[in-house]
Design a protein around this nucleic acid. Structure first.
Lengths: 356, 356
DNA sequence: AACCTCTATGATACCGGTGTCATTTCCACT
DNA sequence: AGTGGAAATGACACCGGTATCATAGAGGTT
């Protein structure tokens, strides 16, 4: 399989039979068959109004018949824009990426755009030059930024400079920017707070996320607001800073459960940390929900697989991805501007109960 | 933001400042600056040996200086191959997709290739025409097929016909095909069998996967082989067919635990179903591992988050993705042909113990 | 010196589309 | 019938690279 000559992708595939493979028609073939110029075919492809109805139908018929589809590379070259949409993510929680990606693909389905995925490391200074080179070279039609990338103002600034369309997915409206999908995590956290308060809990602990994440700040703020609605105040002694990871959740909860006057309920700002609280509860010999109620956030698959099944705040991640995709191409979504907001929902399962 | 004229991607991005945006240099600029023809620059880009060392260095210096990078679209158009690699997956287990994707991205890192993701539905007859149109239009350099897509012979046949390079990821060598990453799931299952047998279990149940999946067949076969090594036979009365899902695992295990003479250990062919067994054990009042030992397969994150932490067979999913990516571009991997095989490894945690 | 071969380079066509602008066609109105 | 203006169409350059093939030099042979 060694190639002698110059580089490039070159070479053939895995199979053998390079039989009578009739080549795909190009725009020139269509033009010839329709008896018009290639430019007219181009107009038909691009839905230009400057084509007589009759001509349009004739060309369309031939396109249909031959199964012609324009070459995205050639089109992209001429347009100076690729028929690609980028998903730029940094992955504290793979579950989010999967779901967002799935939703985004739902939206792109049949649109002729392909999804290219670009993980970045938010702590690396190289991320900016990486993305710059990606955008400049590939010229994607647009990109989607789930949190926490959506909060990276330097990156957003870069995208503006590069004149690259983007949609941000975040827990709270950011800036005066209009292209966003907002999940209002604060409201979800407030639901969790009200739920626990209504069950009669007063000593409620909080396992917080990294302070640099907007989602963490927002969830915490919403949680405090929810408690306030019920006349409760978050006790600083019952707050632990963690890092959105399982291990950090284990450590934080372990610490809380060892308190002389331990909490009767714990709200963890994501399911990973809540799962950590389950582990610490087991280690400490506490039974959920008899001795300690636990609420998570995200309603990831693990929430329903733990025992007892965990109460958690559900985020419609897939919908969020889909909405982001739809917002990228508003011109295609004739008329109705897609909604910008989604609402979290508390899923009550068996990990929460009245305190003893 | 409404555009009046013809269609296409067009339009600008979100930002304002379209200031002194100096355009990226093209191959023509480089040629002019270096005082050579564009073809010579092209030769340098593609590492052609037909360039005098002196000329090469001069051109390279200018490329370095200007930060020139060739346009993938133009290059792709001329090569009739896109600088894209496809990941075609069908997703019984999102965890696999994430990990494979990550590994594949590891391999593609810095190669100039972008990863485009294409989910398909293995039960849909449209999948073939979908993929055909994807390949014909985008002309990806190659594609990676994780299982169960890798077992879709119709699809593989199509790829051969389209002369599209591919690498399959599967649990067992398929056909006489040479471009594969093989994980030898059977050996992993055998390790699980030996582990349980060595603990003293004899009434060992099996929660099997969908019979159409090679991985399921392979794991089961390996498990039986492992038992045989220890002089044990799989009791057909202790085998339940399930569907690789959590719910099906719950149902299968519930059934097993209700048996008059229930098993003392369960091996589930993936972690999702094993998590289901945990749930059924809880429902039945059985304590793991005292009353029942449980072993899963995949070592997904959930394995270590369940209580007690679950013994499971680990698959190096990320490595598999990386290897697949490296195998796609053997020309770039000067010399050393990448290895085709990876080995599963049993991770022993706290869900397995000597039977009472 | 003439001839040959091999290496290095460039001129030009081409990949498959779109943009620009000139030209033709159509139709309403004098 | 003649005319003006808008609608419809096409010729041709161009997007930014690569392939082909011709050609200029370098070095060796007779």
């Amino acid at each position: 399989m060694q190639r002698g000559g110059e580089g490039g992708p070159g070479g053939g595939g895995g199979g053998a039979g390079s039989g009578g493979a009739k080549k795909r028609p190009t725009i020139n073939d269509i033009a010839r068959m329709a008896g018009v110029s290639k430019k007219t075919v181009s107009r038909v492809i691009n839905d230009s109004p400057l084509v007589r109805g009759e001509t349009r139908e004739a060309v369309k018929a031939i396109i249909q018949e031959t199964g012609f589809a324009p070459d995205p590379q050639a089109r992209g070259l001429a347009f100076r824009r690729a028929f690609l949409v980028g998903l730029i993510y940094d992955n504290p929680n793979p579950q989010h990426t999967v779901s967002h990606q799935q939703g985004l693909l739902d939206a792109l389905q049949g649109s002729g755009f392909e999804l290219v995925v670009r993980p970045i490391d938010r702590t690396s200074p190289r991320r900016l030059s990486d993305i710059r080179s990606f955008i400049e070279r590939q010229k994607p039609f647009g990109v989607v930024l789930p949190s926490p990338v959506s909060e990276d103002e330097e990156l957003v600034e870069l995208l503006k400079e590069l004149d690259c369309r983007y949609v941000r997915i975040a827990s709270v409206p950011l800036d005066e920017d209009d292209r966003m999908v907002v999940s209002h995590d604060g409201e979800g956290a407030a639901q969790a707070a009200r739920h626990l308060a209504d069950l009669g809990h007063t000593r409620i602990a909080l396992v917080s996320g990294p302070p640099t994440f907007r989602s963490s700040k927002e969830r915490r703020k919403g949680f405090e607001a929810g408690l306030a609605e019920r006349g409760l105040l978050l006790d600083p002694a019952l707050v632990r800073q963690a890092g959105y990871t399982y291990e950090s959740g284990v450590a934080a909860a372990r610490d809380l459960f060892a308190l002389p006057n331990p909490p009767t309920a714990v709200f963890a700002l994501n399911d990973e940390m809540a799962a950590g609280a389950y582990t610490s509860a087991h280690e400490a010999g506490l039974t959920i929900p008899r001795d300690i109620s636990v609420v998570g956030f995200d309603d990831a698959p693990i929430a329903s697989r733990l025992w007892p099944p965990m109460t958690s705040v559900r985020l419609p991640l897939r919908d969020m991805g889909r909405l982001a995709g739809e917002m990228l191409a508003p011109d295609l979504m004739r008329g109705r501007p897609p909604s910008h907001d989604v609402q979290p929902e508390l899923i009550v399962r068996a990990s929460t109960a009245t305190p003893r």
